[in-house]
């Protein structure tokens, strides 16, 4: 059984980062730079989102001999969840999460 997702400010930051280009796959290091979160904070959030099927992951196909990179993108339910919980003000910057998570 998966426990309810804790909507911390950092989780909202990550969801917000995905909302900027919802259909694009993102690298972990790019999300880290966008959000300013360290790997020790970012990856547990990604793991939790993936556990709850809100995030899909994929290995980037690369040329032979070059190790692949891991990619992330919100699922349809993840996108809906992010839109429900990340609120933007008129200037477009994120202000707060709407309500407690149910996923």
């Amino acid at each position: 059984m998966v426990s309810p997702l804790r909507l911390s400010p950092q989780t909202l930051q990550v969801l917000d980062a995905f909302l900027h280009a919802p259909k694009d796959w993102k690298y972990g290091y790019d999300i880290s730079r966008d959000t300013g979160l360290k790997s020790g904070t970012l990856y547990p959030i990604l793991m939790r989102l993936a556990d709850r099927k809100l995030l899909e992951t994929s290995w980037e196909p690369t040329e032979p001999g070059k190790p692949p990179r891991h990619l992330y993108r919100l699922t349809v339910s993840g996108l809906r969840f992010a839109r429900e919980h990340v609120v933007h003000d008129v200037t477009g910057s994120r202000v707060l999460g709407l309500r407690g998570a149910k996923s």
């Binding site: 690298y27 290091y29 360290k38 790997s39 904070t41 970012l42 990856y43 190790p67 990179r69």
Partner: peptide, 19 residues
């Protein structure tokens, strides 16, 4: 895999420690 794309050596170490 992301370590290869981090410019600074020290930043890569912090990344690895967090990871």
């Amino acid at each position: 895999r992301e370590v290869d794309f981090i410019d600074s050596d020290w930043a890569s170490l912090w990344w690895a420690l967090g990871g």
